[in-house]
């Protein structure tokens, strides 16, 4: 039920934001500019639901992560009911240059839409522009290309607000006092930087909670274990840890367990992958911010099919429409509400 409500909300938000973009484009005062802009795209309208052959490419930053697998499965589920729609997935091995190469290949192969998780917003911007100019709608997932590159849509989990929500709940669990630390990802990624900023800004409202340290574990579970060991060594009174993603939070929880401090430290993650939910159930972790990655992938695919089937192209937009996924704050109290079929 909740899933359907979220999906409905997202679709509405998507249509509203797209309409907003289209409406504002229609209000442009210079018709010549409009015609010139419209001429930049060679988009052909196809009907995915009437048997037209459709090829969609999904290009991930690192296809092996649970998030990427969730999106991939969501895309495949959305398109799986139609035999005429084919989805091909590509992994870029965490390299922006690989993504640029794959983008070029996909444009040359005439894919009808591309769903892309940008490794590097600036590096990928020309490829996104090139694809849109070739009439291939590009829908970015979570990590967007640079903001001045208008493209068909961005589907994203909340970032700043996820940090805020985690901070508020964690502060409540800690009784609004104590020393806490942050385990960072790779600095420079918009989503994770915003997440951390949201967390820091909110914690600043609690004068008795001190962020005593912040170290990077590069999104890796084993590195997070080492970082957590150092935290435990340095700060005897450490009460909480906020990790920017769930894998690192899981690593921190394992390190705490190894130091016989299971459940004593309030460990939070973000993403909501199934292993983290299991750790919340077992008391190893205190909470996470859950986003349904399957729905996120499925939403991206819905927009891709919508763009393929419509006569509109990116030229009608004044800004990239954003669809923001509903986040859920998960703690031991409500983790049971997330059904098995919604755990990715």
């Amino acid at each position: 039920m909740m899933k359907k409500a979220i999906a409905l909300m997202m679709t509405t938000a998507m249509l509203m934001s797209m309409t907003a973009g289209i409406v504002s484009a229609d209000r442009r005062e210079d018709p010549a500019a409009q015609t010139a802009a419209a001429g930049e795209s060679s988009k052909q309208r196809l009907d995915p639901y009437a048997g037209d052959e459709i090829k969609i490419a999904y290009i991930a930053h690192d296809i092996g992560t649970p998030n990427n697998q969730g999106w991939k499965e969501g895309i495949e589920r959305e398109c799986g009911s139609w035999s005429n729609i084919k989805v091909d997935s590509y992994g870029a091995e965490e390299k922006a240059e690989n993504q640029v190469q794959i983008m070029t290949d996909c444009i040359n192969q005439g894919y009808n839409a591309i769903i892309l998780q940008c490794s590097d917003g600036t590096a990928l911007a020309p490829s996104v522009r090139q694809a849109e100019e070739a009439g291939i709608p590009v829908i970015t997932v979570n990590l967007d290309c640079s903001s001045d590159t208008i493209h068909s849509a961005l589907v994203m989990a909340v970032d700043y607000d996820a940090g805020r929500m985690a901070a508020e709940k964690m502060a409540e669990q800690l009784g609004e006092e104590g020393d806490i630390a942050i385990i960072q990802g790779v600095p420079g990624l918009t989503r994770t930087d915003n997440l951390e900023q949201g967390f820091r800004d909110t914690i600043a409202n609690y004068p008795n909670i001190n962020i005593v340290d912040a170290q990077s574990a590069s999104f890796q579970k084993d590195t997070a274990m080492t970082v957590m060991n150092s935290f435990l060594q340095s700060y005897e009174n450490l009460k909480g840890v906020f990790a920017i993603n769930d894998a690192m939070a899981e690593g921190a929880a394992l390190a705490a367990e190894s130091a016989n401090k299971k459940g004593e430290i309030c460990i939070w993650g973000a993403d909501g992958e199934k292993d983290a939910l299991a750790m919340i159930e077992s008391g190893d972790m205190a909470g996470t911010i859950y986003t349904n990655s399957w729905d996120e992938g499925s939403t991206a695919a819905k927009i891709a099919l919508l763009m393929i089937g419509s006569e509109y192209s990116y030229t009608c937009l004044t800004e990239t429409p954003k669809v923001i996924m509903e986040p859920i704050v998960v703690t031991a109290e409500n983790v049971g509400d997330i059904a098995e079929e919604d755990r990715w």
Partner: peptide, 15 residues
């Protein structure tokens, strides 16, 4: 070295 950098709270940008 990694342990020392962590214990001295050297930010990852400088590590």
């Amino acid at each position: 070295l990694n342990n020392g950098l962590n214990l001295m709270s050297v930010p990852s940008t400088h590590a």
